[in-house]
Simulated scan of single mutants.
Amino acid sequence: MTERAASRTAVLVCQGRAVADGRMGVGRFSDPVAVELLVDGERELVDLVRAGAVPKGFGARMEYELLSATSEVLAARTVAIDDAVRESAHPQLVILGAGLDARAWRMPELAGVAVFEVDHPASQAEKRDRLGEREALADVRFVPVDFGRDSLGAALTTAGHDETRPTTWIWEGVVPYLTPAEVAETVTEVAKRSATGSRLVITYPTPNRVYHYGRKAMEVLLSVSGRTNPMAGEPQRSSWTPAAMAALLAEHGFSVTADRDLQSVAVEAGIEGKRTSVRADGHIVIADRR
């Protein structure tokens, strides 16, 4: 996650949820707020993908296919995370690298929950502009953190996070852009503030050479066609086997409750799509502090 206002990755994720809303996993997935967080120029492609109107131009087709694939992954990922949040029902929720996440505005289960949205100050400022006067369902606390300079723990303390009470932590779509050392450092900080019973939910990619080169090819094609590459400046720096992820979490006092690939989540939730291999390579791990 790069440190700039409303990164293209954050916008792409929001667009993906907007595409999936009301179309994928109906009854399991829903994010009607996502489209409201998009601005003019970001909604047009969403409308095309929702309508199945495949553009003819090469560059436009690349953008279409990227967003279509993203929507399939995001629908499954969101279902699994939302289920984990509902199940834990903790009084505190921390979203690391919140981006344009809309859970605090769309999940009635979060009414009365203290939701701490951690992100770069510039990204948060733009998100708040996009939200306008929309009222949150939860007690939202914006926690500005420049991860290169600021202490996550100190920022959370200032925002009112109580490390003696159970917390659910969401770390979605960030791990691929961090080195293994940076991932371990964040897990260490989370563990320090996790009371017994706390839950950590992480999405992560498993090693896959085909996906790696496929992503590189997509980036090149977008560049050649003169289109904006939403992945520019955010290279994949780490991938994990389930065993390696479980070992890291165990080292910090978390026991894995479930680790599933997103394809199995999608099948269970009735989310159809063509990108089964991409979803199979993405995992979500749920770990609890004993």
Rank of each mutant, 00 (worst) to 15 (best):
G97C: 03
S88I: 12
A75I: 05
D101G: 04
D101A: 03
T70P: 06
L93H: 01
A84R: 07
R103N: 07
A76C: 10
A80H: 10
V94C: 03
S71E: 01
E72L: 04
L96Q: 01
A89Q: 13
Q92W: 04
E65T: 10
R86F: 14
A98G: 08
L67C: 15
D101Q: 03
E72T: 09
L100K: 00
T78E: 06
L66F: 11
S68R: 13
A84V: 05
S88Y: 03
A104V: 04
A69P: 09
R103I: 07
L67K: 09
A104L: 04
V94N: 00
A75L: 07
A104H: 06
A75C: 10
Y64L: 13
S88V: 12
L93M: 07
A76P: 11
A104M: 11
Q92F: 02
A75P: 02
I81N: 05
A98I: 02
L66V: 13
E72I: 05
A84W: 04
D83I: 08
L96D: 00
R77P: 09
L96R: 01
H90V: 07
Y64E: 09
I81H: 08
L96S: 00
R86Q: 15
I95S: 02
L74D: 09
E63R: 14
L67Q: 07
T78L: 09
L66G: 05
L67G: 05
A98H: 02
T70N: 14
G97Y: 01
D82L: 08
A89P: 10
I95N: 02
V73L: 15
A84P: 06
S88E: 07
A80Q: 11
R103P: 04
R77L: 12
A69F: 10
T70Q: 13
L66H: 05
A75F: 06
E72H: 12
A102K: 03
H90A: 12
R103K: 06
V85T: 09
V85W: 04
D101L: 01
D82P: 05
A84H: 08
V73I: 14
G97L: 01
A76G: 13
R103F: 07
D82K: 06
A89F: 10
I95R: 01
R77I: 08
Y64H: 11
A84I: 06
P91A: 04
G99K: 00
S88N: 13
G97S: 02
V94A: 03
L66M: 14
D83S: 15
G99W: 00
A104C: 06
T70H: 11
A98T: 07
I81F: 15
S68N: 12
A102E: 07
L66Y: 08
R77G: 09
A69G: 14
A104W: 03
E65H: 14
I95V: 15
D83C: 12
L67P: 08
L93Q: 01
E63M: 14
V94Y: 01
I95K: 01
V79N: 04
D82N: 09
L93K: 00
A69S: 15
A104S: 13
E63F: 04
S88R: 14
A76Y: 06
